[in-house]
Amino acid sequence: MSWNQFVTVTLNGLTLAALYFLVAVGFTLIFGLMRVVNLAHGSLYLFGGYVGWTVADRTGSWILGALAAAAVAAVAGLALQQALLRPIQGQDLREALVTIGVSIVAADLMLAQWGGFTYGFSPPAAISGGARLPVLGIGYPKYRLFILGFALVVGLALWLLLTRTRLGITIRAAIDDRDMVSAVGVNVQRLFALMFAFGAALAGLAGVVGGSALSIASGEDARYLLASLIVVIIGGMGSLAGTAVASLLVALVEQYSLALFPTYAAIVSFLLMVLVLALRPQGLFGRPA
C-alpha cells in the first residue's frame, strides 16, 4: 500500500466513521436512556433522506433540505414514541417487535411514495469539489471533510451537553438510574420524549448528510440499522464515547479491508463484532450488568 493510498483509505475510514457516528449516536442515546432498542432507526434515516431530497429539490437549497429532514424525522420519532412505545413502556421485547413492525410498514410506504429510484443530492458549492490537503499532499473531496468536521462538532456538542448542562446531568442520571431520577421529581416522561425526538432528528439529518456522500435508495434503512447495531454493540450500548470509538473501529476496518481484500470485506466487520462480544460482552465502553 503506497503512502497516498494509505492516507486516502484512512481518511475514507474516518469520514465513514463520522457518518456511522451520526446515525448510531441517536440510537445509543435512546437505548441508554429508555432501554428501547429502536429497530425503526434506519427507517428514520431513510425517511429523513427522502424528505430532505424532496425539499432540497423543490427549494433548491440543500441546507433547507437538511433542516427539513431533521424536523420531519423528529416529529416522526416523537409520534412513534408517544403513540406506540409509551403504552408498552418497559416491556423490552414488545418494544423491539413494535419497532420492527414499524420499520417494515415504513419501508413499503416509502417505496410506494418515492419508488425504487436512487436519489443523489447536490450539496452547496462551498463544500463540493476537491481540496488539496496541505502536509499530506493528496487531493480529497471537500464534502467528505465536511462530514468529518460536522460529526466532530455534533460529538463535541453532545459531550458538552451531557457533561456541562443541567439537562445533560439529568440525562446521565436517568441513564444510570431512571427510577431514582423520577423519584426526585424530574419529569422523566418529558425527558424520554425529548430524547427520542432528538435521536430521531439526528438520524433524519444523517439521511441528508450521509445521502449526499453516498446516495439514498430503498433498502438503505436496513443497511444503516445494521451498521448502527454493529457500532453500538461493539461500543457498548448507551455510551457516547463507546459509539465514537466503535464507529472509528468499524469504519476503518471496513475501509482497510475494502482496499486490501475487497472480496471478504463484508465479513470483517462481523468478525470484529464477534471478537468484541466474545472478549467483552458488554461492549468496549459498556458497563457490566
Binding site: 423490552d92 459498556g286 458497563r287 457490566p288
Partner: peptide, 22 residues
C-alpha cells in the same frame, strides 16, 4: 427491567434476526 447483559444478548439476536425477519 432486564439486566444489561440480557438486553445486549437480545439486542444482538434481534439485530441479526432483523434483516431476515423483515
Amino acid at each position: 427491567r432486564l439486566s444489561r447483559r440480557e438486553l445486549l444478548r437480545r439486542a444482538g439476536l434481534l439485530g441479526l434476526a432483523m434483516p431476515v425477519a423483515s
